[in-house]
């Protein structure tokens, strides 16, 4: 770059800390009065039971997602289930829930052997740091589950 900016009067570290700290405090205060409220853990169970009732066994399903979301508005999620996806053995449905959003349900996906591969990608909203749970229903009516905690941070400028 040919035009180097001139040296500026330095913004003091105090300016930066005040700006950042103020935002952090505001976030903490906002956290005490979440509006709207998060989903009840029972709501999550209820929603997941819309796929099938029963107690899922942890395993077979993988939730691919960032550990820390770039922005809670758009969190890329990849769900994959370990299944041959043949007529003999396939995934019928996958339900996904989020315990920190106002409504627990995120999506229900219906699959069949026609898919050849049990993998689906989409993008979801996360109102705050929370645990995302996925339950897969197989054609033999077995239920498998996975959970992943995804952190949601507030951006540098509070956005």
């Amino acid at each position: 770059m040919s035009n180097d900016p001139r040296v500026l009067p330095a913004m003091t570290r105090r300016d930066l800390v005040l700006a950042a700290g103020g935002g952090v405090l505001a976030t903490l205060v906002a956290g005490l009065f979440p509006l709207p409220a998060s989903a009840d853990p029972n709501d999550v169970k209820k929603w997941l039971s819309t796929v099938a009732s029963g107690t899922p066994t942890p395993g077979k399903i993988t939730i691919g997602a960032p550990d820390i979301a770039e922005n809670g508005n758009v969190v890329p999620i990849t769900l994959s289930v370990d299944s041959p996806m043949t007529e003999q053995s396939y995934v019928k449905s996958i339900a996904i829930a989020a315990d920190g959003n106002p409504l627990p349900g995120v999506a229900i996906v219906d699959l069949s052997p026609a898919n050849g591969k049990a993998e689906v990608q989409f993008r979801m909203r996360l109102a705050k740091t929370q645990t995302v749970t996925a339950v897969a229903l197989m054609n033999d009516n077995s239920l498998w589950s996975a959970a992943k905690t995804i952190k949601v941070t507030i951006g540098g400028c509070g956005g």
């Binding site: 758009v74 409504l103 995120v106 999506a107 229900i108 996906v109 219906d110 989409f122 979801m124």
Partner: peptide, 10 residues
């Protein structure tokens, strides 16, 4: 393929 979407979808 079928997907039911909720308000938590972006």
């Amino acid at each position: 393929f079928k997907m039911q979407l909720q308000p938590s979808i972006s």
